[in-house]
Design a protein around this nucleic acid. Sequence first.
DNA 1: TCCAGTTTGACAAGTACTTGTCAAACTGAC
DNA 2: GTCAGTTTGACAAGTACTTGTCAAACTGGA
Lengths: 149, 149
Amino acid sequence: MVREMEELYYELFEAAGQGRRVGEEIAAGQGQTQSRWQTMWTIEASTALTVPQIARRLGMSRQNEQRIVTELVDEGLAELVANPDHKTSPLVRLTAKGARVLDAINAAADDSHQAIIASFPPARVEQLRQLLRDLTAATSQAHGTTAPG
Amino acid sequence: MVREMEELYYELFEAAGQGRRVGEEIAAGQGQTQSRWQTMWTIEASTALTVPQIARRLGMSRQNEQRIVTELVDEGLAELVANPDHKTSPLVRLTAKGARVLDAINAAADDSHQAIIASFPPARVEQLRQLLRDLTAATSQAHGTTAPG
DNA sequence: TCCAGTTTGACAAGTACTTGTCAAACTGAC
DNA sequence: GTCAGTTTGACAAGTACTTGTCAAACTGGA
């Protein structure tokens, strides 16, 4: 029972590592990185978020996310807008250029996803997603896990 | 369809990140790290492996694995034994001390695993493992993914 | 309105991991 | 055997991420 759990994590890390490497490759096609892609994806999904909010969602340290966002802003892919709820913690939003870059990365990802779906159909994707969410919830319940930072 | 794949990776990275953080905590109880635990676990599972073999199994760079193994050897947790197949690439094996430390970490992990199993039963662990293996296989087929290094 | 506790951005330092390079050792086709 | 191509360990440099600290801004209870 315990051995199965160890192997579960082995396989989980393997799948995630592989996904990260593939994502790194895809993002590199637009001169970006996996982390920056994830950040842009997260911002877009919520329209606008503060740096600490993004960091918490990605399970990443606040300071690292700060650095990534600063880079995106420096390159004109993201912009900071006033946050009515917090005078010194602005909201991060994609610029038109950022949205275009994200779209281009997503388009490249589509090709990859289509190729994967050929041998891993949508129904199994849904099953897997549900199990991952449940595992995460069960783990959160067992530990009081939070992001670093 | 594509959106579901993006969310799959979001959830996959979330689960893996959480697992890594919990593992880091558990390993810290024995003065170790997640990476060193994974290395010890991998060595033990195969009795003895070369550094590049461990690196490939963990999807990690050869040089980083070299560093981790060197640290384990320096602390007497692992030892290098002559490799009949390669004069200058020794096999890495756990020492008795290393096996004891690994057992202690595994024991601590058991408690964590039991707590998780309470809300994520073994049958679902098996389902999840199967899906993860299939996703990894499908991705390998779609790309020619290999470890960095 | 106050004020203890928390969150935030900036700055700095440390750690973990990757990438590049090279010579020695291996491998396999011939 | 021989020799082009690959793998390996050592060394070095670069990159990504975490951790620590601090003051300013926020939050919520009394």
